[in-house]
Design a protein around this nucleic acid. Sequence first.
DNA 1: GTAACCAGTTACATAAATGTAAGTAGTTAC
DNA 2: GTAACTACTTACATTTATGTAACTGGTTAC
Lengths: 114, 114
Amino acid sequence: MKDQQDDGCENVHAAIQDTLYVVNGKWKLVILSILVNGGTRRFGELSRESGISPRILTKELQELEINQLVKRQVCNTKPVTVEYSSTPYAETLKEVIDAMIRWGRNHKRKIRGQ
Amino acid sequence: MKDQQDDGCENVHAAIQDTLYVVNGKWKLVILSILVNGGTRRFGELSRESGISPRILTKELQELEINQLVKRQVCNTKPVTVEYSSTPYAETLKEVIDAMIRWGRNHKRKIRGQ
DNA sequence: GTAACCAGTTACATAAATGTAAGTAGTTAC
DNA sequence: GTAACTACTTACATTTATGTAACTGGTTAC
């Protein structure tokens, strides 16, 4: 009777900040949207597709891996390639990702219309 | 036939980044969740409730106001008070906010269980 | 052995976000 | 006139995020 319906305050703040802590910054949700909605990518593909420089991309992917949202797999190809894919847990973020995609599209439409 | 279903790439990135541009940072979604789910607050109330210092809170509220997500109203009380409330447009962010609240709660449960 | 491709890494620089502490200005109560 | 309350504002310091450019180490093709 305090954890379940204390929506007046702290519970909500903490929940939002817990989420932000995991998907903070300019890039994490972009990366996740590619992997969740588009499937597996290699390092170079992700970098070119998203426009994220290697340095940042490495860091972001590591952080996502730590939080079990991304899986890294080294492939035994001639020049070694590395495949990144979203985990089942990352799929639980789809709701957030898709809501943001919808809102962003609608917002751009709104701005243009003004 | 390019704007409607080009979900493979850029459209999605842009949409997410457009949203992030408006609700970036540690605090904007926290503030919005208070106002959207909890109703009107005064400046001091918001500061105490959220733990945001006056300097930051002023800046965040101004940015939210510029994006028409928050309405500022000066009240003719003895010590002048200022009321902040969410706009109808902010309500369209409820989907995003609530998805993040749900995910954050679930995530904390998951982390504790490990 | 030289060039090219992969997946990073390193060093460096800058920009943006956030925080702390103290001060301002107007009003009211004592 | 002093203290207290409101809503900020200012100056300053620090932390965090992001970017750029060049370099490493391994493999393959010529």
